[in-house]
Design a protein around this nucleic acid. Structure first.
Lengths: 215, 215
DNA sequence: TTCGGCAGGATTGTATCCAATCTGCTAGAT
DNA sequence: ATCTAGCAGATTGGATACAATCCTGCCGAA
């Protein structure tokens, strides 16, 4: 038996994220509430509330009396998201370094190891999740919950496209190396190095994702 | 006759914002859906969707099977919000300066004048709205819609407390002066001066609002 | 071809009912 | 007297059905 979310709308929300992430719901595509509600086996009420949440995150757009559509990301949008990530992640990393304990370092190293394991298994969804867990464990150390929430929104916005990034073997190796560097910088409590490697890591990502969007 | 929002949930959303802003719904207070739905003359469904939006913005919190509560802001929360605002507004102002046209300057000057007029009338809600219009007109010039959206969320989070700021006459005069300085810096296309005066403006605000929260 | 209107479809809003859960009170045990 | 278990009331969460509103696309007339 699968671990069941407490409420239907949470379950629907999780399902929607997967649908969007895996491309079952493609960018620009309309979301027909009745169809999706039936597909998920729920009524429209929790579905709409989940869609409202996604709308708030910018994952879907809403046109009055026309319904919800999966958000599309232009090159400009993408660059803006990554610019904002750069600014906010620097802040998060800076705060994280000043808070980090040896215990935290162990936990993060463990998460890095899980990313490594996930890249072996070739399962994109698993790699995405592991990668996310690794990075947000670091961001969480900032002890700035609102900052983390904003970052989560920004990551969500590009998840669809970033997942393609993980499908290429060359990228996977580089990611693992960069994670090691980040971990090393954190261990040394070096803000500058931590930020630099985050920047490098992100720049490599944006380059690949831009290529995806450009076609 | 007042301009009516197109959908009921938008109307409810606007009403909720006013209720929260004016303190009819006080921080920490539970929002009883049935009562409020009846008070607004709507059913619970659009009310809940409006609450979902506010939850996404962090304006209200949600506890499972216990309902919605008006969000409370701790001193730490407040400082985090203002720290994030500082970071993001600097980015927005920088981009705005590089885009600003003479036409934009006229429009912003006009908005500044409206703030001045609003302060005369002593109506807090009006001042808040005018002030917001002034600042976001500047932020919008960044042509970074997601950045503006994040800023809007951050402003919303502290609106309740900031409105108190406007009730004090001494603050009002200073605000007007600072707006003039911002306008002057923008006219000169000086990024450094624009950022500096935004920082000063914000610092004065956070000091007052902190005092309010501290009691 | 273009314009106007009409029908169909989709979303939105509402009402009602039921299930799940939380809260507070009461009764019993220690 | 205090603590705990459990019951009742209240509230939220969800499902379903139906009415209302609005968009879209087609069809015919000028």
């Amino acid at each position: 038996m699968r671990a069941k979310p407490k409420t239907t709308q949470e379950e629907v929300l999780a399902l929607l994220r997967v649908e969007i992430l895996t491309g079952s719901l493609q960018p620009g595509q309309q979301i027909v509430q009745d169809l999706l509600a039936e597909k998920f086996g729920v009524s429209r009420v929790p579905l709409r509330e989940a869609l409202k949440i996604l709308e708030g995150e910018g994952q879907v757009t809403h046109h009055l009396h026309r319904g919800y559509f999966v958000a599309e990301l232009s090159i400009n949008d993408l660059q803006e998201v990554y610019r904002l990530r750069a600014i906010l992640e620097r802040e998060a990393v800076t705060a994280a370094v000043s808070n980090i304990t040896d215990r935290d370092l162990l936990a993060i190293a463990e998460l890095a190891a899980q990313v490594r394991k996930a890249t072996k298994s070739s399962e994109v969804l698993g790699i995405t999740a592991a990668n996310r867990a690794f990075h947000f464990a670091i961001f969480e150390l900032s002890e700035m919950p609102r900052l983390v929430r904003l970052l989560r929104q920004l990551w969500d916005a590009t998840d669809v496209y970033r997942s393609v990034y993980f499908t290429q073997a060359a990228n996977r190796d580089r990611i693992l190396l960069e994670h090691d560097e980040i971990l090393s910088a954190l261990s040394a409590r070096s803000v500058a190095r931590s930020i630099r490697w985050h920047d490098i890591h992100r720049d490599n990502s944006v380059a690949s994702v831009s290529a995806v969007i450009a076609g």
